[in-house]
């Protein structure tokens, strides 16, 4: 449609920062137990992903799938959709992520998470750490209430950021299938925060670049394509 060229990014800012951050406050107070449970599940999944072993791969994928389902229905549909008409257009992507994570969990050989000590692992671990611990509390420095914290597992931005971290910690040829949705969401999140004059807009943007770079690096180094050794394939018994 020819008319669209005349729009600028700021034209699509439909709500004020006050209304946006109150969404998290309302969600956190209304759904406290679910929000805390999702965060704790995320912390456990992170712990499992950091181990240099193979147990818990399925657990991580199931947790992430459930978390994406909760973010899609809870935050995106119940809270964000009423103030942002873009949401219904991206929601099918979120549902696709839920399904993909579930499919990976159901495969006989799910993705293998673990610390590899390479650059991608460092970046992946950093994303998870930022999503779990840093992102929710940045608002405090800007004078926002603790109840407005954007928590991994319930808010879309830290969940997308953390998921990219989990993917970078994983091995498996098809792991890239899990990248586009959180990657695109990080771009949308960055643009939204940027037009709202929020400095944290830089975080999801940098995450996009680093993810693309790490995916390329891993492809080049054969991290995702190399066949796993027999030892790596065997589930430890301890």
């Amino acid at each position: 449609m020819s008319e669209w060229w005349s729009y600028g990014l700021a034209d699509f800012l439909l709500f004020s920062p006050r209304v946006y951050f109150r969404l998290f406050e309302t969600m956190n107070t209304t759904w406290g137990l679910a929000v805390v449970s999702a965060l704790v599940a995320g912390v456990i999944a992170a712990g499992l992903a950091m181990r240099h072993g193979h147990r818990g791969n399925r657990v991580i994928l199931v947790v992430l799938s459930l978390i994406w389902a909760w973010v899609s229905y809870g935050f995106m549909w119940q809270y964000y959709q009423p103030i942002n008409w873009v949401v219904p257009y991206v929601l099918p992507g979120f549902v696709a992520e839920v399904v993909l994570l579930a499919v990976f969990a159901a495969r006989p050989l799910p993705l293998r998470f673990g610390w590899r000590g390479d650059f991608s692992s460092v970046v992946g671990a950093a994303f998870i750490g930022i999503a779990l611990v840093v992102y929710p509390f940045v608002g405090l420095f800007e004078g926002r209430d603790l109840m407005q914290a954007e928590l991994f597992g319930s808010a879309a931005d830290p969940t997308a950021l953390g998921t990219l971290g989990f993917v970078l910690m994983a091995r498996g040829t098809w792991r890239w299938l899990l990248v586009p949705v959180p990657l695109i969401w990080c771009l949308i999140a960055s643009a939204t925060l940027w037009v709202m004059d929020q400095e944290i807009a830089i975080v999801p943007l940098v995450a996009v670049w680093l993810t693309v770079f790490c995916c390329w690096l891993d492809l080049k180094n054969g991290v995702t394509t190399r066949r796993m050794t027999q030892a790596e394939l065997v589930e430890p018994t301890d």
Partner: peptide, 13 residues
Amino acid sequence: SWITFNVGNDMEL
């Protein structure tokens, strides 16, 4: 009403 009235389901707002 652009931006100012887009307060979603927040009853207080």
